[in-house]
Each structure stands twice: as C-alpha cells, then as structure tokens.
C-alpha cells in the first residue's frame, strides 16, 4: 500500500522532469523555426510547449498535494516543493518567450539570427543539465555536483552569447533604436531562462548537502 503510493509519486516526479526536458527541446526548435521564418512549425512548437507547461503544472500541484496531505518526506518536502516551483519558472519563462515572439513578431535581421539560435541552444543545454541534476537529487545525491557545474557553465556561456548579441545589435547602424531595444528584449528574455536554471542549481547545491545522511 505505502509502496504503491510511493511508486506513483516517483513516476509523477519522473514525468514532471520529462516535461521540463522536452520543453527545452521544443523551445530550441521553436526559436530556430522563428529565425528560419518557418511559421507553421513555430506555431506548432508554441502550441506544444504550452501544453507541456500546463501538464507540468498539473503534475507539480498533484505531487505537492500528495506530499502535504500524506505527510511524506517531512524532512525534505519543503525543499522538493521549492525546487519544483523554481523549475516551473524555467518552463514558464521559455513558454512566455515563444509566446511573445508569436505576439510581437520581432524583425530579426539576417546577420543576428545565428546569434539567437546559438543563444537558445546554450540556454537549453543549461536546462538539460539542470534536469539531470534534479534527477540525481532524487536518487543519487552524490552525483548532483557533476551536473551543477555544467549548469553554471552554460549559464555563463549564455550570458556571454547574449552580451555579444546585444553589443552587435546596438553597434549596428542599419537599425532604429526602437528596433534595437526590441531585439535586445528578446536576447534578454532567452538568456533569463538560463538564469532561472541557475536559481534551481543554487537551491540544489544547498539541498544536496542537507540530503546527505
């Protein structure tokens, strides 16, 4: 009985992390579609990431309710909840960014497109390492560190790419200031996803110490 409940929770937690990881892939493809002016695929990916976000939300609420109503993992449930909520911020940020691209339709000149694609790739790598660290936290806390440093690496990498992109945008003499600001806004928003992943990593590094027996 107790193991059945536990197994169910384990599966839900795995499913939650799968959604986050999948959302990363969908986000990367969405940005690529947008930069390649592939409108149909872009909208399809936007739809897909919205669905993933919704499903992850449902799973998170479900797990939270079960942890509290059944007084499970009393020592670490606060930590687990905080981790899931911060992780939720990452997928929210990715969904909002694609959604804003769809609404605002920023005009991205040809020469800046590879920069955005590269930024999205780097951000998604940080997300993927974050998911690996989260999985390790659940089963194998000693291994968490191996992933955390990669999250930090890709977060820094993303900052660097975003900065280069912004400098190039503002150095350009073909664009209006309003256009530059609009483009910077998107570079900033994509980069923020990596910052949120870093927030999760920060929490993880503390909670992992607490988790050791």
């Amino acid at each position: 009985m107790i193991f059945k409940k536990t197994k169910g929770l384990e599966l839900q937690m795995d499913a939650f992390l799968d959604k986050i990881s999948e959302a990363g892939i969908v986000f990367r493809r969405g940005v690529k579609n947008y930069m390649n002016k592939d409108a149909n695929d872009f909208e399809r990916h936007l739809e897909q990431i919205r669905r993933l976000e919704h499903e992850a939300d449902e799973l998170r609420k479900n797990i939270e309710t079960q942890l509290y109503t059944q007084t499970l993992v009393p020592e670490s449930r606060g930590d687990i909840l905080a981790l899931m909520e911060t992780t939720d911020d990452v997928i929210d940020r990715a969904t909002d960014t694609l959604s804003e691209m769809s609404i605002e339709g920023p005009m991205v000149p040809e020469e800046f497109r590879p920069g955005y694609i590269e930024l999205a790739k780097s951000v998604v790598k940080a997300m993927e390492e974050m998911v690996k660290a989260l999985r390790a936290f659940m089963r194998d806390p000693l291994n968490v560190r191996n992933y955390l440093h990669k999250v930090y690496h890709f977060e820094k990498e993303s900052d660097r790419i975003a900065e280069d992109l912004k400098r190039n945008i503002f150095a350009s003499d073909k664009l209006e200031l309003s256009q530059k600001i609009h483009l910077r806004y998107f570079a900033l928003h994509i980069d923020t996803i990596a910052d949120r992943a870093e927030d999760v990593a920060d929490r993880l590094s503390i909670y992992t110490i607490k988790r050791s027996i």
Binding site: F3, T6, L9, V73, F137, R139, L142, I213
Partner: peptide
C-alpha cells in the same frame, strides 16, 4: 548502502 542502491527519495522515505 545508500550510495550503492541509489534509492529514490520517496522510496527511501517509505
């Protein structure tokens, strides 16, 4: 044992 078996946090709780 915990290092070797890599028990999930929820199962370990049970």
């Amino acid at each position: 044992i915990l290092e070797f078996w890599k028990i999930h946090i929820f199962r370990l709780d049970a």
